[in-house]
Amino acid sequence: MTPPRLPRRALLALGAGALAAPAVARAQTPPPAAPTPFEVRPLWPGAAPGGEAVTVQEQVVLRNPNGDPNDTAFVHVRDPWIMLRRPARPNGAAVLMIPGGGYQRVAVSKAGGDIDARLAEMGYTVFVMDYRLPGDGWAAGPAVALQDAQRAIRTVRSRAAELGFDPNRVAVAGFSAGGHVAGMLATRFAQDAYTPVDAIDRLPTRPDFAGLMFPVVTLTQPYAHGPSARALIGSDPTDAARDAWSIERHVPADMPPTFIASAADDRVVPVENSLMLWQALRAQNLASELHVFEKGGHGLTDPGQAGPPAWENLFDAFVQRVRSP
């Protein structure tokens, strides 16, 4: 903080009966400002790929018209970005957070939020990403958010040496429809979703850990989240399209260790989404951990529970305990 301006000096007595003169205050150099915990950068070095037919205009709206002015959502995303929150005491790992929004908007703020703040307090170097949406005319269609997620995790790894974390200890944490994006990132890393544009794109896209919180997983009936399914593959999709974009149907043998957390009383995304993915992981004997809370709804926030959501410490313990192959 800039120090207060010094008051004008008192008159200096030069001797008995001498004239007095004001002293000149010396200019002071303010102390260097502490580095800001936030930094927002564009995700792509130029225009995002495949936007030749995109005509929509990006908007930023309040999620609640009378709520917190920092509680925003991005609609018709054209210029996705990635935000960095630096920890005070780095623990050597990083987390890429992917927020939700039903594939119709991205519920994210450039001012950060409670979850990324708490993960930074645990020592994680935290990145939060914005991403493009499938209904806006991008050439990649349903894969457009995966393009941004692959670019984002490569961007995270490109900064490991600069920021002091291990590029082989990078987790992805996805929430709701962002859990579907994170799930695609954790299952489809063997195929590039876009043509490389620079040196960053030589880096791997496989997360070392995946955390999926109250995630959209399946697009099959009867447990598909209707709004996400319609935004991703249309209002009357074929069974083949539903299968192609259902995470639990495409689990590779080298999927990263996966942490899943949901609430039994989630009325938005049925908890069966989490159960189906865990069963698919278990069938291949892959490292995984599933937590189903009695209460918490869509968001895992239990009004009767004091302190941060329980899943945060459980996820931290999972990342610290499990070693990615």
Score class of each variant (00 low, 15 high):
Asn285Asp: 12
Ser324Glu: 07
Arg267Asn: 13
Asp116Gly: 02
Leu286Tyr: 04
Val319Thr: 15
Trp278His: 15
Trp311Phe: 14
Ala152Asn: 00
Ala261Asn: 06
Val271Asn: 08
Pro80Phe: 09
Val126Lys: 00
Asn273Lys: 07
Ala88His: 09
Arg9Thr: 09
Pro90Leu: 14
Arg154Leu: 07
Ala93Trp: 05
Arg282Ile: 12
Gly112Tyr: 02
Ala120Gly: 06
Arg230Asn: 14
Gln59Pro: 01
Asp130Tyr: 00
Ala139Arg: 07
Ala143His: 11
Ala264Trp: 07
Arg249Pro: 11
Leu12His: 06
Val268Ile: 10
Phe214Lys: 08
Glu289Thr: 13
Asn66Ala: 15
Ile260Met: 07
Ala53Val: 09
Arg157Tyr: 01
Gly226Thr: 15
Trp278Arg: 12
Tyr124Glu: 02
Asp266Phe: 04
Thr125Trp: 00
Asn285Trp: 10
Ala177Lys: 03
Leu11Val: 03
Pro7Arg: 04
Pro35Glu: 15
Val56Lys: 07
Pro237Met: 03
Thr218Tyr: 01
Ala310Asn: 01
Thr301Leu: 14
Arg85His: 06
Ala152Cys: 02
Ala182Thr: 12
Val128Lys: 01
Leu96Val: 06
Ala93Gly: 09
Asp201Phe: 10
Trp278Gln: 14
Gly137His: 12
Thr72Ile: 11
Phe209Gly: 05
Pro325Ile: 14
Phe293Gly: 02
Gly67Glu: 03
Ala10Gly: 10
Leu119Ile: 02
Leu212Glu: 09
Thr2Phe: 05
Gly51Tyr: 09
Met1Gln: 12
Thr155Ile: 09
Gln57Ala: 12
Thr195Tyr: 03
Gln59Trp: 07
Gln305Lys: 06
Ala120Phe: 04
Gln305Glu: 14
Gln104Asp: 06
Ala33His: 11
Pro49Gly: 08
Pro37Asp: 11
Met1Ala: 15
His180Ser: 04
Val24Pro: 04
